[in-house]
């Protein structure tokens, strides 16, 4: 549609966006998002991006710089941002709308319900600053309820990537998927956990291994904690498995059943309230289909608080040691 001049302008911009897979790299998932989005913008002209005055933090600024015509800063108005994203999708665009997780899912929840989900619009809600690892900003900025809020909505797909490598693939994948998606990202740098040959698919969990005693179903930053816990448990003679359930909805029930049938205990681990998130999703499914003992690691009906991310993870019981303790206490009984 554009003139030749516009085309060449786009091409020169493209060269500034390099390709990065983030395999094996410790990086904040929001940074992987920013890079993936800018790259996606180069490949797919339909991609447009909206932000609510947080583009520097959500990392959509990278896309904004490369493709200013396809970036819309909506100002501090999350509800309007969601509706505008919906309208853009109705003209065939693929809108990515970003802000902090609590403002995206909390402030604009009913807009997401009515406009995006009920009309089944092709909008990608990619929120950063989820969980307590937001750190010093404290409770007002730490979404511990967002997965619950999004999971309850019909049509919505909910994805919580574990590292930068997975995030990059999630972003590429959801751009090609038709329908509403919520992607939950974080602020803090996280270790790389996914192997280099990993391929993300919506609704497909990744099985590191299946344990005979216990299987830990984790997502987001808790995958790394689960892997550490596995090592610690093996020293105590407990055979633990780890599954990355990055898609919370639709849940990979096949892997869940496989894990539940083989072990005595299922542990869920997430940087989210134990009410309504991954732990609830797993419990709901297993209690109806293969009742088994379940322990949920997550925040416990509480708000977050200020502090250093590592200290907060300890304070709120979200470490490998917390997983180990939960498992060993159960085994002792």
């Amino acid at each position: 549609m554009g003139s030749r001049e516009e085309k060449s302008a786009v091409n020169t911009q493209q060269s500034t966006v390099e390709s990065q897979s983030f395999a094996g790299q410790a990086v904040a998932t929001r940074d992987a998002y920013g890079a993936a989005l800018a790259e996606l913008g180069k490949r797919n002209e339909k991609v447009v991006v909206l932000d609510a005055d947080l583009s520097g933090s959500t990392k959509t600024a990278k896309f904004a710089k490369a493709f200013p015509d396809r970036f819309f800063n909506m100002g501090i108005s999350e509800q309007d941002m969601i509706g505008t994203a919906g309208g853009l999708s109705l003209t065939g665009k693929i809108p990515f709308a970003s802000t902090f997780a609590i403002f995206e899912t909390g402030r604009a929840w009913e807009q997401i319900r009515q406009t995006i989900c009920y009309s089944s619009l092709n909008v990608k809600l990619v929120a950063t600053h989820s969980g307590i690892t937001v750190g010093e900003d404290g409770a007002s900025h730490q979404a511990l309820e967002d997965v619950a809020l999004m999971r309850v909505l019909p049509q919505m797909v909910v994805i919580v990537p574990s590292d930068g490598f997975e995030t990059k693939q999630v972003i590429d994948t959801v751009a090609d998927y038709e329908g509403p998606v919520y992607v939950r990202l974080g602020r803090a740098k996280v270790p790389a956990v996914m192997p280099a040959d990993y391929k993300f698919r919506i609704g497909k969990a990744y099985k590191f291994n299946i344990g005979r005693d216990v299987n830990i179903i984790a997502n987001g930053i808790m995958v790394s904690a689960a892997l550490q816990a596995r090592e610690l448990l093996s020293k105590e003679g407990i055979d633990a498995g780890v599954i990355n359930m990055s898609t919370v909805k639709p849940l990979d029930t096949e892997i869940l059943l496989e894990a539940a049938k083989i072990s005595k205990l299922i542990v869920t681990a997430e940087e989210h309230s134990i009410i309504g998130g991954l732990g609830s999703a797993v419990s709901e499914f297993l209690s109806e289909n293969h009742p088994i003992s379940i322990k949920r690691i997550g925040t416990r009906d509480t708000f977050g608080g200020s502090g250093k991310p590592d200290e907060l993870l300890k304070l709120y019981g979200l470490t490998a040691e917390d997983i180990v303790k939960t498992v060993t206490e159960f085994m002792r009984k």
Partner: peptide, 16 residues
Amino acid sequence: QGLSIANGMALGLRLD
């Protein structure tokens, strides 16, 4: 909610 949606459509149509 409608005016936000209308805005998004107007933006998308203008891009095209």
